[in-house]
Design a protein around this nucleic acid. Structure first.
Lengths: 218, 218
DNA sequence: CAGGGCATAGTATAATTGTACTAATTTTAT
DNA sequence: ATAAAATTAGTACAATTATACTATGCCCTG
């Protein structure tokens, strides 16, 4: 019986440490390491490849999406399991990452048993298919048909854009953001417009909602 | 050496189960039970009182605030530890619950050691004082002094107001809302202003954030 | 039946956001 | 080293939101 190495990245220390304990209790897990953000996880992986990496979708430093892209590009043998808060909010991300080649998606309110099953499935069968994934796929199909807001709009914001979006969500005006970042108001306004285009909204409300769904605010 | 019974309520199964494991590993914890929402926790407590109840602030069925109120009213001997995601967003809740008499507040990204300390502190010294609490208190004082947003404003919106806030969050403009509800733009505008006053914000971003925190949008 | 909260509607002005472009410089990737 | 992307900055105008009031009718409660 083969045993697996599992690494986990999650910014909530309590959750992460508890998960480490849980993972260690699984029969076929031999080694568990943890990182508090995507960057740290990538460093870990540089030294030694795990069989499975468990990644929290919402992380502040390097978010789940970016982390997964890096892993897939640099360590394509590592199987990735995404942890996500709610299926609804992160549907567009899930779709994107399915395209990238992520191997499993689990809600954070999954039973431990299912996590264990998922770990074994991704290494042995390369994918773990569950209700969550099925739902996202179905939703994608139905919403595409009815011509709604583009389900997955690339929405990969640059660092500057994320920074500005975060400040918008702290209720700063364009002027205030300009002052804080020592930028022209025009520049900030342009970034704002670019963000809106990237995420596919056309007003402040949409921006804030996106920020929530993308985990840029909590 | 006295040993304690600890119950935990959190809607994220994975987190909750992992926490149960973690709690059981603490030297002076003898019994751990878990519930997936406030209601279930209250039922548990009806049959047997724990020494400590750990409550997630964000729960769908019966939220943390309500659960704590009930526990404090019906089982005043039970010490309550609140788990919260971010200090910033839930500051108003934390203050409210400090007034109610909750015994400790921890961020979800706390080290396990601190959780253990907090458990022993609340039963022995009735309160666990940490940086998070200090920060909220300080913020409350400074913001009160400078006449800022009232930290805890009950924010009980009327049905009409909730309805309009929901439409705002669907990215409708005042005009569109007026049309949809067959109201004058002015009326909608007035409701909007009243909502902003009630919840203590002064722009669209604040409105949307409130709606998220209050569960008016998901 | 008086007062309070709620829902409605109005006026007027200031401030901010939204749209639509152009354009130079720097950084990053192929 | 060259192309693409990111960051910076600008102009101009339209649309919407934010602030600050007044005012009326309705319904409920003490």
């Amino acid at each position: 019986m083969k045993k697996y190495k599992v690494y986990i990245a999650d910014d909530h220390t309590l959750f992460r440490k508890a998960m480490v304990n849980l993972l260690r209790s699984f029969d076929r897990v031999v080694e568990v390491k943890d990182a508090e953000n995507g960057k740290e996880l990538l460093t870990l992986i540089k030294y030694e490849e795990p069989d499975v990496a468990i990644v929290d979708l919402q992380m502040p430093i390097m978010d789940g999406a970016e982390t997964c892209e890096q892993i897939i590009r640099r360590n394509p043998n590592v199987k990735i399991i995404i942890l996500t808060m709610t299926m609804h909010d992160s549907a567009k991300y899930i779709l994107h990452m399915m395209e990238l080649g992520v191997h499993a998606f689990l809600l954070k309110n999954t039973e431990p048993d299912e996590l264990e099953k998922a770990i074994y499935a991704v290494v042995e069968k390369d994918f773990y298919h569950n209700d969550l994934v099925a739902a996202v796929l179905r939703k994608n199909v139905t919403e595409k048909r009815s011509g709604q807001r583009p389900m997955f709009r690339q929405a990969e914001l640059t660092e500057r854009e994320k920074e500005i979006l975060a400040l918008i969500c702290r209720e700063l005006t364009i002027r205030e953001i300009g002052q804080r970042l020592s930028l022209s108001e025009n520049t900030v306004r342009n970034h704002r417009v670019n963000i809106m285009e990237k995420v596919g909204v056309n007003n402040t409300v949409g921006l804030v909602k996106f920020a929530y769904e993308a985990g840029i605010v909590n």
